[in-house]
Design a protein around this nucleic acid. Structure first.
Lengths: 321, 321
DNA sequence: CTGTTAGCGCGTTCAC
DNA sequence: GTGAACGCGCTAACAG
């Protein structure tokens, strides 16, 4: 294995000079710095990160924490795209992505704790934003850097990356009413009262007010209750849902009762493969990969100041397709 | 931070004795070994894995490689479950799960290479099994340990974990014909010719022969071709598909042409949320979490010999629900 | 600007 | 059975 001593020897300098040159230490002259970097490049030298980590006291790894199934739906493709966005940025920084994923919250916390204690991981991404999250609490207490996906409403000073869900709700509802000519839209959400759902609903309600239509909301859950809801609202001619899956589930129940023709749907996440449904589905793309990239930018903003107007929180735009 | 010197001091022994005691070195007497381990436990000592990795020349991390989108569908929830199964085993071994995920195969290979060169990761899981995979080739050449998910038909000596897709195909088809009383089943597969699809199809074909029904297969792809296929086969009264998504896509096209009543479906992976479809869907559970656990067992079988009859390949059973 | 030295925390010689 | 000393590869403190 090629070590720093080897390239120091070949360059005819001491090890520390080589080290400084490779790490762009300003105390090294431009000339020798470039010479050594070129040599290292030519020789194919790669630093040993285990050694680097030992001296740095910090691993070149970011812990990425999945939500548990009771809190969210970790199976959602959204998370895979997010992962990809995060990883693309991490590899550029020579960081590695370590995941913490588990069925129970307790195991998950143990997972994170051992990452911190034994592995010296000091930066984390929580792919969710929950109230009273024990993992966030632990990271805060240890004064470790972390960024959440979604706005953590109980800890406003945390770093987070989010979509502007309110605006996306407005955009989606406007599209549904204006472009798709729906007269009696229903807003469909899960039974979980997640923050992003509420924000999207607010957007919907605002637009409804503008268009002078009565806002109507249905929470999913017990099937017969939803069926009854649909029976009581035969006027519904379009859906806005918080999620593709929710949209399809509701739509299916509508179709059970009547074969409608014109029935546009606007929902979020773009998470269903093409051809899976005959619904007229317009899914709002929230660019999970971009969110992942932005997350990493925020996570490293202590080293690489970012150019955004609002440091600490980044909003990713959306797109209706 | 509590180091090994601290607990050596508290135990009144030298550092090396402490180290040996903690690593169960037989040269240490049972008594002192237990005493020191108990002390370390009590004091909450945790070894620094960065230091450990440096001396060991190997990181306590396993690289887990996602397929690229052109080869498979990384968004499939299957992979999340697999991840969870892998991680649960890794945490027990004080290992960390590092993912490699990328859009392009080139980037992915770079990702893996830097994990090896810089991070000293020496064990990998490929969550796929492709022909002529450059990553597998690289790992082989570097003589690193890796396990693939699915049988790599071009390199029979590789380690892999798989389902018995043939048997699952037989079981599923039997269930469809015998329990669900389908007379004219069609086998639906993707256009990719993946190995596991062919194996499942073989199972289907065998059962078809037994039941004296003509085997019928439809590859998905161009919609109008599939529509034509359906039109030409009005006798079809049940589906066996290689995947829940494929099943639903085909079923939708069937429904386009006629409102059928009794139309059972058997497919694989159990990857759709409940309530998403009104199809009579029986999805075969392949226990991805179990596959993940087995994968790790295989990956560490050099250290912890496994009790399976066929070392090198593990088959996970299936379940029809 | 550059070289010398001393650790980082651990496992592992090699002596006793 | 136990301890002292060294080295893993690299960075940082102290020199010059």
């Amino acid at each position: 294995m090629l070590t720093i001593r080897d390239i120091a020897a070949k360059a005819g300098v001491s090890v520390s000079t080589a080290s400084r040159a490779l790490n762009n230490n300003p105390r090294i002259s431009q000339a020798t710095r470039e010479r050594i970097q070129a040599l290292a490049e030519a020789e194919g030298y790669l630093p040993n990160y285990n050694a680097k980590n030992l001296t740095a006291g910090e691993a070149n790894a970011v812990g990425v924490v999945f939500p548990t199934a009771d809190h969210s739906q970790p199976e959602n493709p959204f998370y895979i795209d997010l992962l990809r966005g995060i990883n693309s940025q991490l590899t550029q920084r020579h960081y590695v992505l370590s995941v913490a994923i588990s069925k129970t919250a307790d195991e998950l916390l143990e997972n994170v704790k051992s990452m911190v204690a034994q592995g010296k991981i000091k930066r984390f991404v929580l792919m969710y934003a929950h109230h009273d999250d024990p993992i966030a609490a632990f990271l805060r207490q240890q004064k470790l850097r972390f960024v959440t996906i979604g706005q953590p409403d109980d800890h406003p000073s945390d770093y987070f990356v989010d979509n502007d869900n309110l605006e996306a709700g407005i955009g989606g509802a406007t599209y549904l009413l204006d472009q798709l000519h729906v007269k009696h839209p229903v807003f469909v959400e899960s039974s979980h009262n997640w923050a992003y759902e509420q924000q999207r609903r607010q957007g919907y309600e605002r637009v409804a007010a503008t268009f002078n239509v009565e806002p109507l909301t249905c929470k999913l859950g017990e099937l017969n209750r939803v069926r009854l809801f649909i029976k009581q609202h035969p006027e519904i001619d379009g859906i806005m849902a918080t999620d593709d899956f929710n949209a399809i589930e509701f739509y299916r129940l509508v179709r059970e009762q009547s074969a409608v023709k014109h029935f546009p749907i606007v929902s979020f996440n773009h998470s269903l493969p093409e051809g899976l449904t005959d619904a007229n589905l317009h899914s709002i793309n929230l660019f999970p990969e971009k969110m992942g990239s932005a997350t990493v930018a925020l996570l490293f903003s202590d080293r690489e100041p970012l150019a955004t107007p609002t440091p600490g929180r980044i909003k990713i735009p959306y797109e209706i397709k």
